[in-house]
Amino acid sequence: PVVAYNNPIDTKVDLVPELLAKLHAEGFVQGVKEFSGDVRRAYRIAELAPELDLLIGADDVLLELAVAGAKGWVAGYPNALPAASVELYHAAVSGDLDTAGRLYRQLHPLLRWDSRVEFVQAIKLSMDIVGRPGGPVRPPRVPLLPEQEAAVRAATEKAVAAGLA
Results as ranks from 00 to 15, higher is better:
A84C: 05
A66Q: 03
G31S: 11
G69Q: 13
A92I: 05
P139I: 09
L48I: 08
S94K: 15
R112T: 11
A46G: 08
S36K: 12
G72H: 11
R41Q: 10
L52A: 09
G101E: 07
P133D: 08
P139T: 14
A92E: 04
L19V: 13
T99S: 09
K124S: 02
W73H: 08
W113E: 00
Q30P: 00
R105H: 07
L144I: 10
V32R: 11
F119G: 02
E87T: 14
L65N: 10
R40D: 05
L54D: 04
S85M: 08
R41F: 01
M127Q: 14
D114N: 14
V86E: 11
R112S: 06
L63V: 05
S126Y: 01
K71C: 03
A25T: 10
T99P: 00
L88F: 03
L110T: 01
S126L: 02
P109Q: 14
K71Y: 03
G76V: 12
L110E: 02
S36D: 12
P78E: 14
Q121V: 00
V137S: 08
M127V: 02
E26Q: 14
S36H: 12
R102L: 05
S85D: 06
A25E: 14
D128S: 08
P133T: 04
L23E: 09
L63K: 11
G135F: 06
G69D: 12
